[in-house]
Computed example of a mutant assay.
Amino acid sequence: MAYKVLVTPRSFGRHSNEPDEILKRFGVEVKKNPYSKIMTEEQMIEEIKDVDGIIVGVDPLSKEVLQHAEKLKVISKYGVGIDNIDISYAKERNIKVARAMNANADAVADYTFALMMAVARKVVKIDKECRKSNWKKITTIDVHKKTLGLVGLGNIGKKVAQRAKGFEMDVLAYDLMPDYEYANSSGVQYVNHLDEIFLKSDFISLHLPLNKHTEHIISKDQFKLMKSIAVIVNTARGGLIDEQALSEALQEQLIWGAGIDVFESEPPQNKELLGLDNIVIGSHCAASTVQAIDNMGIISSENLVELFEKDNEKA
Score class of each variant (00 low, 15 high):
D59G: 12
L307H: 05
A245F: 00
A90H: 07
N33R: 08
Q291T: 11
K24S: 12
I298V: 14
A236P: 08
E47G: 00
A249I: 12
C285N: 15
V124P: 01
R25V: 09
A183C: 07
P209W: 02
D59N: 10
G81S: 07
S36P: 00
S201G: 15
R25F: 09
Q222R: 14
Y190K: 13
N17R: 12
K220Q: 04
E306I: 00
A120S: 15
R163S: 11
A258D: 03
I87N: 05
M296V: 01
P34F: 06
D110F: 08
A107K: 03
I281A: 06
P178C: 12
N270R: 09
L6M: 06
K145T: 15
S301A: 12
N33E: 04
N102Y: 13
T214H: 11
L225G: 12
S36L: 13
Y174M: 10
E47N: 06
D170W: 00
I75Y: 04
F203R: 02
Q43D: 00
E252W: 05
F308R: 13
Y78E: 05
D20C: 00
N295Y: 09
A292E: 13
R131H: 14
V97I: 15
H193G: 02
N102P: 00
V51T: 12
R237D: 03
G79D: 05
A105Q: 08
E70W: 02
I293L: 14
P267C: 03
G238H: 06
G275D: 07
I293P: 05
G157H: 05
I126M: 15
S288C: 01
V119P: 04
Q43L: 06
I55H: 11
S288R: 04
A230L: 07
I281W: 07
A287F: 15
I126Y: 09
L250I: 10
T8V: 08
D20E: 11
S288E: 14
P19R: 04
Y182E: 03
K212C: 01
I241P: 02
K32Y: 15
K165G: 02
D221G: 00
D175K: 08
I299Q: 01
M169K: 13
L23G: 06
G187E: 13
I293T: 15
G13D: 08
S300L: 05
S247T: 12
V30H: 07
L72Y: 04
P178M: 14
P267K: 09
L240N: 03
K158S: 00
A286Y: 13
I281P: 07
K212H: 14
G81Y: 09
M39N: 05
Y182H: 11
A245Y: 03
S185I: 01
A292T: 11
G187S: 10
F223K: 06
W135N: 04
R10I: 14
G152E: 09
N295E: 09
L273K: 04
I279R: 06
S228I: 09
D277C: 06
H193Y: 14
L210S: 06
K136H: 10
G154S: 06
L172R: 14
Y78I: 02
G259L: 01
R10T: 14
